[in-house]
């Protein structure tokens, strides 16, 4: 048990160090362009916790990130470089919206689960396509997932502008989904979607599935060495496709929960590139579903904090993009250092 804990410490030491260094370097930057660097940093880091409503917005921001990032860990562990989180998110959101509007007459107890299922299936479909193409035909998944992002974005844009547009509202938004199937808020935190609880639970459940079941071991075997997986009798192709269904399903669920819990309708620009940010979260978490929960929370804090910072001081919110870049840089730099020292010790 104690060795489990030291393993854990060793695993988080690197990312935490990189985060700390990034924040320190960021502070120097802010200090060089702002008269009130301390205030700017306070807003960036702590404004999220100033009020319950800020905290609710923070959780709402984190929810899709957590779900997509956890889904991506399944894909990556199966060896699929899935960059299609954004498209899968949109597919899930539009599927839930369309289903809820079309079948709005159904009783809530029936409509609610079906609407969620529609979202999951919508995302899963977009994950299934690159998965099956990769396994059966060897098509590169990066290209396919990336292209599907564009297809999903443009197709949903068409739907929301031409088919299900709320003609009484300003902007490209759909009709509202029926209020009877809106997700409740978290008790005690007005405005915070209970979708976050679902996301947090699923992140921990995914940890168990990936690392404590035979199925999870088989997915990782297929991802680390497909030919080995085949040789020990794993239906490796099937595992890869299932991992992509799950990755897509998670992103689709993120879309469904956004529509039912936060937006209550499909908005064309509801996503500040959640799919891409979640990819960073998953990589920062070293492709571990439980760690992805925390990196997603960190990113949500930074995204929202940047807005508060820009309001209170003259520091532009694009600082966050810069910090993100720095963080990625420092994470990779650490990897290289480790590899080089490994080489010297491997010389004899």
């Amino acid at each position: 048990m104690r060795s489990d804990f030291t393993d854990f410490l060793r695993a988080v030491r690197g990312p935490l160090g990189a985060i700390a260094l990034t924040m320190a370097l960021g502070f120097l930057l802010v200090a060089s362009i702002s008269d009130e660097p301390v205030l700017a940093y306070r807003e960036l880091l702590f404004a999220n916790f100033d009020s319950l409503s800020n905290f609710a917005l923070f959780l709402n921001r984190a929810t899709p990130l957590v779900l997509i990032a956890v889904g991506i860990t399944f894909a990556f562990r199966a060896g699929v470089f899935n960059v299609g989180g954004e498209g899968q998110l949109f597919a899930g959101a539009i599927a839930t919206t369309v289903f809820s509007i079309v079948f709005s007459g159904l009783p809530a107890i029936v409509l609610f689960p079906l609407a969620i299922a529609a979202g999951i299936l919508g995302g899963a479909l977009l994950g299934w396509i690159p998965g099956v193409l990769k396994v059966r035909l060897g098509v590169d998944e990066v290209v396919v997932t990336f292209m599907l992002n564009t297809i999903a974005l443009l197709f949903t844009s068409y739907l929301v502008n031409q088919v299900i547009r709320d003609t009484t509202a300003y902007g490209a938004v759909s009709w509202m989904v029926p209020e009877k199937i809106w997700l409740p808020t978290i008790p005690g935190i007005p405005g915070a979607t209970s979708g976050f609880i679902i996301a947090a639970v699923l992140s921990l459940a995914s940890w168990v599935v990936l690392f404590r079941t035979k199925w999870g071991a088989e997915v990782r075997a297929a991802g680390t060495n497909l030919r080995y997986a085949e040789a020990v009798g794993i239906a490796a192709g099937g595992r890869v496709i299932w991992a992509m269904l799950i990755a897509g399903g998670f992103a689709g669920l993120a879309g469904a929960l956004y529509v039912l819990g936060i937006g209550h309708r499909f908005e064309q620009n509801f996503s500040p590139e959640y799919g891409l940010v979640a990819l960073t979260c998953a990589l920062l978490a070293r492709i571990h579903p439980a760690a992805a929960l925390f990196t997603s929370l960190y990113y949500a804090m930074m995204l929202n904090g940047a807005a508060y910072m820009q309001i209170s001081t003259e520091v532009p919110r694009s600082l966050v993009d810069l910090l993100t870049g720095l963080l990625v840089l420092l994470m990779t730099a650490r990897f290289t250092l480790r590899r080089r020292s490994g080489q010297t010790s491997g010389a004899f």
Partner: peptide
């Protein structure tokens, strides 16, 4: 039969290249 079925039927397989088919070195 599939690979798994053959193994269940009593086949053991040590592949020629342990890093290729024999092991997943990262696991």
């Amino acid at each position: 039969d599939t690979v798994a079925e053959r193994q269940a039927a009593g086949l053991g397989f040590v592949p020629e290249d342990r890093l290729d088919r024999g092991l997943s070195s990262d696991m």
